[in-house]
Each structure stands twice: as C-alpha cells, then as structure tokens.
C-alpha cells in the first residue's frame, strides 16, 4: 500500500529519516517513528502471524493496542503489539507461528 504523502487538510509529509528492519528474515524500509504495523502495511504486508493452534492468518484489527491480534516477536521478545511498537534501525521482527498444543493432544488421546 502506498503512503499518503499529501493530504488536502493535513498537508504534505515532510522528509523523514529512513530506517531498515527485518520481518521474517526479509529486509524492509520504514520511516523513523513509524509503528511496525504501519511500516509493514506500507510495504504491502498484511499478514503478521498465524493463529497459534489453527494456523489461520491474522493481521491488525484494532490498531490501538486493544485486540492483541498484531502480536509479533520483536528482538526476541514475544507477544509484542506491532501497532504500538515503533520501528528501530536493525530491529528483528518475526511473525507469530503455529505451535503444537501438547496438552490438548494428550487430553484428546485419553
């Protein structure tokens, strides 16, 4: 998706410093002070994780920190909200993955 560089009421966005970061081992560019969610969407990435159990794809839903749908791993810290976290130079972001639910399987096999 493209950025809204000019706006009839807000006006133009001034030149901002660029930083680069990684999402699932691919390098992307973001503007300084931009959230991970905004930077990824601007780069055309909507899918931020899959549901831990079913593997269904998920992206931002509320964009203001309420719903936790955009949680990703940032520099090793899991469950970080992409919509509230500002990108920093060299940041390593990883999408949420499907995980084996060992206990549930054990219960099912009983």
């Amino acid at each position: 998706m493209s950025r809204i560089l000019d706006h009839p009421v807000f006006g133009k966005i001034h030149e901002r410093e660029l930083v680069s970061f990684q999402f699932d081992e691919k390098t992307y560019q973001a503007y300084k002070d931009e959230t991970i969610a905004a930077a990824l969407l601007a780069n055309g990435v909507r899918k931020l994780r899959v549901h831990e159990e079913s593997g269904t794809p998920r992206g931002i839903y509320c964009n203001i920190g309420h719903c936790m749908e955009c949680r990703v791993t940032v520099n090793g810290q899991a469950n970080t909200r992409a919509c509230l976290t500002v990108v920093e130079q060299g940041m390593i972001v990883e999408s949420g993955k499907q995980l084996p639910n060992i206990i549930k399987r054990m219960v099912e096999q009983r």
């Binding site: 839903y61 509320c62 309420h66 719903c67 936790m68 749908e69 949680r71 469950n79």
Partner: peptide
Amino acid sequence: GMGFCGGRT
C-alpha cells in the same frame, strides 16, 4: 473471552 486480549473484543 479467556484468550490473549482478555475478552476485550
């Protein structure tokens, strides 16, 4: 309602 968001949604 018992998941990650605490039922907010």
